[in-house]
């Protein structure tokens, strides 16, 4: 198995606050890595550094053998292989669902409109939204929008998917449809890094769980180990709190 992501000593500051303080992370092909940790621990920031949406202060990030640096051309190349889905869906409100999904294949991969359609329709069918292809995103439910956002990223046929708390903005009854989709992706062998508060998902699906605390990876390992016998007391504390909050 080859390394898809290699993060070494990553430091990220926003002004005077250090958000990531020397993070190391390895992701192999077909891995599902779940990032857990309290709000503000730097999960989103780490994901955004991995696809170069944030410039870093020191350390290295290597994705698919290419180092991530703030260079427009290199970043454009990198992001073809890395899909990202955000908490707030971020669909483009001025485009139909179909146009949302086909925009990047058309403009980045230079597919013809019909080829891009041919790629998008089966994906929309798969999430049961083929009949919404010509709707605008604001007319869909949150869960539907989030599934479209996932499909939009998948249409680029990425080698790696980044998910940033993509169920956090959803009503509880809509969470499952999105989680189900992520499980299917994992089963198909997609390499994924998932920032999440859904401990149940992490326990069932993750091949590795990383606990972030104050900008560091305090503990990592298979979910069976992290969830049943955490070594670090902060991990234990965090898990207890989330358990008490009923998120497991």
């Amino acid at each position: 198995m080859s390394a898809v992501v290699e993060v070494r000593g990553l430091v990220k500051r926003f002004g005077l606050t250090t958000v990531l303080e020397g993070v190391d992370l390895d992701v192999a092909e077909h891995d599902v890595v779940c990032l857990i940790g309290a709000s503000g621990s730097g999960k989103s920031t780490l994901l955004r550094c991995i696809n170069g949406l944030e410039p870093t202060n020191s350390g290295t990030v290597v994705v698919n053998g290419r180092q991530v640096i703030q260079d427009d051309i290199k970043l454009n190349r990198l992001r073809r292989d890395v899909g990202i889905v955000f908490q707030a869906y971020n669909l483009f409100p001025h485009m139909t669902v179909l146009d949302n999904v086909t925009l990047a294949p058309r403009k980045v991969l230079h597919l013809s409109a019909s080829d891009a359609d041919a790629r998008a329709r089966p994906l929309l069918e798969r999430i049961g939204l083929a009949d919404k292809a010509d709707e605008y995103p604001d007319r869909l439910s949150g869960g539907q929008q989030q599934r479209v956002a996932i499909v939009r990223a998948l249409a680029m046929q990425p080698k790696l998917m980044l998910f940033d708390e993509i169920t956090s903005a959803l009503d509880p009854e809509l969470v499952n449809e999105v989680l189900l989709m992520m499980r299917q992706l994992a089963e198909e062998g997609m390499t994924m890094i998932v920032a999440t508060h859904e401990m149940g998902f992490a326990r069932d699906v993750a091949s590795k769980v990383c606990f972030l605390h104050e900008g560091k990876v305090l503990e990592e390992g298979p979910p069976s180990k992290i969830f049943s016998s955490p070594q670090n007391e902060r991990t234990a504390e965090f898990l207890k709190r989330t358990l008490d909050a009923g998120r497991m």
Partner: peptide, 16 residues
């Protein structure tokens, strides 16, 4: 700004 992040996350260049 998240609209730009989403667009660039899909691989679109800054100009695109």
């Amino acid at each position: 700004w998240s609209q730009r992040a989403a667009a660039q996350g899909l691989g679109l260049s800054r100009g695109q």
